[in-house]
Amino acid sequence: MNRHAAREKAFQVLFQLDMNDKQPEQAMNDYLESLEIDPFLKDLVEGVAENKQALDATISDHLENWTISRIASVERTVLRIAVYEINQKEDVPVNVSINEAVEIANLYGDEKSGKFVNGVLSKIKE
């Protein structure tokens, strides 16, 4: 599985975790069923789940006229993954994390999701 596919699957698992009360390992097994769990995907899911409060605090610090609770679940999940990557994955260039996040937001969110995600992540990157 390439990293783009792993990010997309991680988004799907984390989105489900945001909606349901499950452990990350259980959510990955339930969602991915027969697929072997990619190490990068596992790191993203477990890292975001374990650091959710810190990630939300970082996101909140860079919001203007918004609160983390007002952000739609799609955008919130995408932002958490990207901020985790930016802060924890030194082997991933920041611009790659941002571009991937915008792509996923455009795919799963509405027409404004990508721009919103890009704007927040651009402020975090500074």
Results as ranks from 00 to 15, higher is better:
Met1Cys: 09
Arg3Leu: 11
Arg3Lys: 14
His4Trp: 14
Ala5Lys: 05
Ala6Val: 04
Arg7Pro: 10
Glu8Phe: 05
Lys9Asp: 06
Gln12Val: 05
Val13Ile: 15
Leu14Cys: 13
Leu14His: 09
Phe15Asn: 10
Gln16Gly: 12
Leu17Cys: 03
Leu17Lys: 01
Asp21Leu: 12
Lys22Tyr: 15
Pro24Phe: 02
Ala27Glu: 09
Ala27Leu: 05
Asn29Glu: 14
Asp30Gly: 05
Tyr31Trp: 11
Glu33Pro: 02
Leu35Pro: 03
Leu35Asn: 09
Ile37Arg: 00
Pro39Ser: 14
Asp43Gln: 12
Leu44Pro: 04
Glu46Asp: 14
Gly47Val: 00
Val48Cys: 09
Ala49Met: 08
Ala49Asn: 15
Asn51Phe: 02
Asn51Ser: 13
Lys52Gln: 15
Lys52Cys: 07
Gln53Thr: 14
Asp56Val: 02
Ala57Gly: 09
His62Tyr: 14
Leu63Trp: 11
Glu64Leu: 10
Glu64His: 09
Trp66Leu: 09
Ile68Val: 10
Ser69Tyr: 11
Ser69Asn: 13
Arg70Ile: 06
Ile71Asp: 04
Glu75Ala: 08
Arg76Lys: 14
Ile81Trp: 01
Ile81Cys: 07
Ala82Asn: 07
Ala82Trp: 08
Tyr84Leu: 10
Lys89Gln: 14
Glu90Met: 11
Val94Glu: 15
Val96Lys: 10
Ile98Tyr: 04
Asn99Arg: 08
Val102Met: 00
Ile104Ser: 02
Asp110His: 09
Ser113Arg: 00
Lys115Phe: 00
Phe116Lys: 02
Phe116Pro: 03
Val117Thr: 06
Gly119Glu: 10
Val120Ile: 11
Leu121Cys: 00
Ser122His: 04
Lys123Asn: 08
Lys123His: 06
Lys125Val: 06
Glu126Met: 06
